[in-house]
């Protein structure tokens, strides 16, 4: 299978799981952020635990992907932009009840108003790149 199709297929799987689990549901997300329901907390905890074991095993068994690329174990060190960046992100998360990925899933589910969130994410990314280059000069890292 060609690489773009492989990435597309994984995107479909991830999007479908986010939709089916309620992670892309605005009301479910709001209930989690208000500590009204444990559903998404359980989801986050199980995901992290299983993924931690899975990544550990993958790291022991393979250093190249099935597509022949080296596996990129991205390092995410703490830097001086981490906390202010997370603070800004948290405000957007609470207001929209979405994150960049779930906004796309919402559009796919027919909630077309989430196109505004997607457009905002794109503007935010471009804006940060411009502002960072001119003003901050902070490490240019991203969510890879």
């Amino acid at each position: 299978m060609r690489p773009p199709l492989v990435h597309l297929a994984f995107g479909v799987l991830f999007g479908a799981v986010l939709a089916a689990s309620g992670a892309a549901d605005f009301e479910a997300m709001r209930r989690m952020l208000r500590f009204e329901r444990a559903h998404l907390f359980v989801l986050a905890a199980v995901t992290t635990g299983v993924a931690a074991v899975g990544f550990l095993l993958l790291r022991r068994w393979r250093n190249r992907s099935l597509l022949g690329q080296p596996i990129k174990w991205t390092k995410r060190p703490l830097h001086r932009a981490s906390i202010p960046g997370a603070l800004v992100f948290g405000l957007g998360w609470a207001l929209s009840g979405s994150c960049p990925g779930t906004a796309l899933v919402q559009v796919g589910m027919g909630q077309l108003v989430a196109l505004a969130t997607v457009a905002g994410v794109i503007v935010g990314l471009v804006l940060y790149r411009a502002v960072n280059e001119r003003l901050f000069g902070l490490p240019s890292s991203s969510c890879e």
Partner: peptide, 18 residues
């Protein structure tokens, strides 16, 4: 939602992840 999206994109890029 647009304003929230700007915060999400800007913050994610600044924090190095979402």
């Amino acid at each position: 939602l647009f304003g929230s999206g700007v915060l999400l994109g800007f913050g994610a890029r600044m924090a190095g992840g979402c």
